[in-house]
Design a protein around this nucleic acid. Structure first.
Lengths: 213, 213, 213, 213
DNA sequence: GATGAATGAGACTTCATTCAT
DNA sequence: CATGAATGAAGTCTCATTCAT
């Protein structure tokens, strides 16, 4: 007789979150209204507040879910038996290619929000730390397997790699469609150059964007 | 008969813009209200519309002014007789250090806005093209002076450099204060490695974030 | 689960409409503010928009309701067993006598609005067509009963009759109170003369506004 | 040295009035702003108040001018040597054909305004009285010349004629373009029948909108 | 659980008018 | 005479949230 079906409750919560995501993608963080979200989720405006304390709470939950998913995906990607560098490069590909402008815009808005909303700031910080931790771990793993330059400091390297991945992603918003590919190749080359162990560096592939001799 | 004011008008316009900037920094793009802006600029609510057609127009003007200033500063920085690479590195420094979180957050919001507001999108695109053009020109100049690897394709190189500068800047928002310096050094090293001409590469400085031997 | 309210909702809607009508009569179409309407209807300023999309929508609904009522009343009036001509004449009476200046002024404003607002224009056009259709039908009915001149073209006759009714109504706004009765008699005579079948025309009543012999 | 050039002042006043008329026709009475009018008249917003006390005063002046012009035109039209009935019919033609929807809408708005603005009400009343006076005079003139039924009461007849003329004019706003001609013929026939002297009535033209035998 | 009516502050913007220059 | 900066009230509408049912 107590709370009816915690499973159903959680399911509805998820439905609302995905509905909210659609709204946010369409209209932006402030642009999407709770009314919009409710109608997208097919619930009444009052009922929203059974599941979330406020609009902010929805944004928080959504951010957290998104970032967790991203982290898990990355962990899975580098978990396989594949070369570590290739895993990182393919991660960059996925990030850059899967980035519809609307999604990126939303991400930017969340970043901006984090500068004014401590709740969001905390979520982002947590995610960033975990992301860097995972990346450092991955780099260490690669060093043990001889794929990554053993002289590289894993912590600082992780920061650099993540920065590059993010830069590649951000580029897609502003660069013309025709430039995107070139830009991505550029960053992949930089990454490879940064990470590759010296023995591999001997057999250098043609470096990026050199003029043809 | 006298048209007294083209200069006074422009001054007031600028005052309003800086007042608006303060508001936007404090409360965000959508968070700042026209009422706030007017009271900050010490004008009546209606009077704002003598100077700007809409709140959007203010954002547009502000974006344009900011981007123009940035472009001019950069052009000045590389215009001197200094080594081109140093100029670029110092540009990165300025971008990263001058970036208060509030300012960065605002920039993010503007990027996000550009995904939904064609007016803003156009301004950003124009700026981005000019920025890349200037950077490519700078790289060519460096190649003529033997400072930059002559095999580097200036256009693609410019894109890469700008991406790195932006990444360094963006990093400052999320990395803990203590990490920021390390991150910047990382990116500076990458940049240097990317651009330096082979003769200079012979006398290699300590590579970035290598574990100490 | 319960959908309690389709009827309550409609009631509130009607309350708001009558409140709005009072405001419009008092202050005119543009003169009445949504705030005024809300306070007259004893609802909060925002709540209005649960029931109507916009102020325009209120005007539209009000116009439509008014015109529908008028049409139904007229249909009822001529539906009885009374002489058709008498029914039309009494319709003219009702129109002219029931016309408070404020109501007429409002009607004029709606007409004016229709020249600039396609939504209103459509409503008026629909009403006008239906009105003319009904009147033509009535005339045909009268012709079958031998009350109306069989040579009269029902469509064109309807147009003329409606024009006369409207003219009688409009007159009340400008003519001095003492003139109104005279004007109405005038138009009634014209109408009678226009419609009466030849057999009835033989027994002519005193013609309108002839100087006494 | 006193007031500079009263003639120039009057000229500018007229220019402003015609500019205001353009604005009112375009946007309506409340829809047109003083700013719009000033820019159309090419004067500064403040300067408007050298010529008119308020926006209302402009509307008043415009109404008065318009009505005066109309009255004069009509007096001129019936002043010639032409048959009185023809003069009235042609007046009806002119009124109906020259009525662009925008002009009619404006007229309606002025009527509506008169119900709430005593200033305007007074102007309209004055005009209406003069109009009726002129028309009655015309009818008497026609009676002296044997063109108009001598039994017709000139005052009441004038009211009826004006009502018909106005009705014909108003019709043009709502009737479909194809109907307008028919409607006008209808009213002209009614008018003719109403006014024509018995001797002329003997030679009856085919009455209006009779079905063909 | 679920509805949707209700709130009221506040958003952006317009406008007739005044006033210093 | 003429300008246009300035006012401030008011306009329509939106929105996150609450509450009775």
């Amino acid at each position: 007789m107590r709370k009816l079906d915690p499973v159903k409750h959680e399911n509805k919560r998820q439905e609302i979150l995905t509905a909210a995501m659609r709204c946010f993608l369409r209209s932006g963080l402030k642009g999407a209204s709770t009314a919009q979200i409710c109608s997208e989720a097919k619930i009444s405006p009052g009922h929203l507040y059974h599941y979330f304390e406020s609009k902010e709470a929805i944004i928080g939950a959504l951010s957290e879910a998104y970032l967790q998913t991203a982290a898990e995906r990355f962990r899975a990607a580098v978990g396989g038996d594949r070369s570590v560098i290739n895993a990182i490069l393919s991660e960059m590909d996925i990030q850059a290619k899967g980035s519809q402008p609307a999604k990126l815009a939303l991400l930017f808005e969340v970043f901006a929000e984090s500068a004014r909303n401590p709740e969001i700031a905390k979520i982002l910080r947590t995610y960033d730390l975990s992301r860097r931790g995972v990346m450092a771990e991955v780099l260490r793993h690669g060093q043990r397997r001889g794929e990554i330059d053993p002289k590289l400091d894993p912590e600082a390297g992780a920061t650099a790699v993540i920065g590059l991945v993010d830069a590649a992603k951000a580029m897609t918003l502003r660069a013309s469609r025709s430039d995107v590919k070139k830009v991505q190749d550029t960053f992949k080359s930089i990454l490879t150059g940064l990470l590759r162990s010296p023995t591999q560096k001997a057999t250098k592939s043609t470096p990026p964007f050199r003029s043809r001799p």
